[in-house]
């Protein structure tokens, strides 16, 4: 079974309110070293069989049309993340 991982982040110029809330909460647990947090999304898409170039291309298209909104988000990576048996 193959797996494609897609990562989506808010655009740098868009204020990320969720990241802002997280960075505000970190010092309450003593984590004072983190000055900024941005929160994105990770999608795991599974397929029967191997992740072919066609599958990756389809995942890229899905990432750009449904998984992200180009007005507010960037697709930062679409990668084959199939786990190889040890």
């Amino acid at each position: 079974m193959g797996r494609v991982v897609v990562e989506v982040m808010p655009k740098p110029e868009i204020l990320d309110p969720q990241g802002k809330a997280v960075v505000g909460a970190l010092p309450r647990l003593g984590f004072t070293q983190f000055t900024s947090v941005r929160q994105g999304k990770r999608f795991e898409l599974e397929v029967d069989g191997d992740v072919t170039p066609e599958i990756l291309a389809a995942a890229q298209e899905a990432a750009e049309t449904l998984l992200s909104n180009p007005v507010i988000e960037d697709v930062v990576s679409v990668v084959d993340a199939t786990e190889v048996p040890a």
Binding site: P10, I14, L15, P17, Q18, K20, A21, N69, V71, I72
Partner: peptide, 17 residues
């Protein structure tokens, strides 16, 4: 309507959360 591209732009979380 913005997601359907009938109107431009988008909405994100309120700035004050």
């Amino acid at each position: 309507l913005t997601e359907a591209h009938l109107l431009p732009g988008s909405m994100v979380k309120n700035d004050h959360l």
